[in-house]
Design a binder for these strands. Structure first.
Lengths: 176, 176
DNA sequence: CAAGATTGATCGATCAATCTTG
DNA sequence: CAAGATTGATCGATCAATCTTG
């Protein structure tokens, strides 16, 4: 914990640096924490019920479809969906069992494995994407003004960057 | 999905109601999604490493300490920490095994069970709270302006309310 | 040995089934 | 029967260990 730098909303100097369960930053965090869990949960139930595919799978399908050749290295995929290497390995195994993705080796570099979208996977993506996007709108963005959407995005992207990860890049969108 | 009502950021009528992976609402959601996962993960690792207690446990301790009599019904606790009934039951069993909480029956109503904070639990809370709150500041609120904190809180609380849950109430804070 | 990936053990959470009390 | 809680089966994710290739 570095106490020498001051952020934008640091408490006055005569207060403890720790803050307490009553400060505004704490409630802001709690609001993000709860909103994410509730919306992601509802989204996941929706997708399972209406398309038979969990939120995670939907994310993977959408990322693969946006990648060149509709495929990605396991490592890279793990990074994008915020899963561990082993997590992605198991996930891809499960999705492959359903025929949505396919493992492909690279003859030029025998160390890497690609996860590749199959035609069935693409069809499933086309079915799930409207539910996914509609859910995000109904559960989340519908309740915010354009200005709030901009502020929230900017604020959360700063938080993401501070962890050393890349925020989502709107200039590299995911076409359907 | 209800298509008859219009929210603040609905697309123009000539566009599909579904939106696509490129719209601002989608990127706002992704930013919240990622930020929550990354911050909660870092917070959890921090707490485990420095206090030997996961984020969930810390939440439970803090909620119990804020409750009248430092105890809550299992049901109520489940609701506050966004876990299922069985989830809380197992969680309390695990925490009780470490002596942090205690199950208490109510002689007046034999159906309910209380989870009560023990003295050891209170000591653990006092050790973990600074790490918890410091982590939130370092990982999250430090990177936001006061104005962003206010906007994010208001926006996420609207989203939470729309799911039918209660946002955190700053007028009922959690004293340490 | 480092990079990339997988496997097996384990942990945490949910769901469905069950139990007890009002 | 409904409310409150727990138990057992199962699922998803991680970590540590292992395997293969550069």
């Amino acid at each position: 914990m570095d106490l020498t730098e001051d952020g934008p909303s640091t408490a006055p100097e005569f207060e403890s640096w720790v803050g307490d369960f009553t400060d505004a930053g704490f409630f802001a965090w709690m609001s993000v924490f709860k909103a994410e869990i509730l919306v992601a949960g509802a989204l996941d139930r929706d997708l399972k019920e209406r398309v038979g595919v969990p939120l995670n799978w939907c994310e993977v399908l959408s990322r693969l479809s946006a990648a060149p050749g509709a495929r990605m290295r396991m490592q890279e995929l793990a990074d994008e969906v915020l899963l561990s290497k082993s997590g992605v390995s198991q996930l891809v195994t499960a999705m492959a069992r359903k025929g949505l993705v396919e493992r492909q080796g690279d003859p030029a570099n025998l160390r890497v494995t690609y996860a590749a979208l199959t035609p069935v996977g693409r069809t499933t993506l086309e079915k799930s994407a409207p539910v996914f996007l509609g859910g995000i709108r109904e559960l989340f963005s519908r309740h915010l003004t354009d200005s709030e959407i901009r502020t929230v995005t900017r604020a959360m992207n700063k938080v993401i960057s501070a962890t050393g990860r890349e925020p989502e890049n709107p200039d590299r969108p995911r076409p359907l």
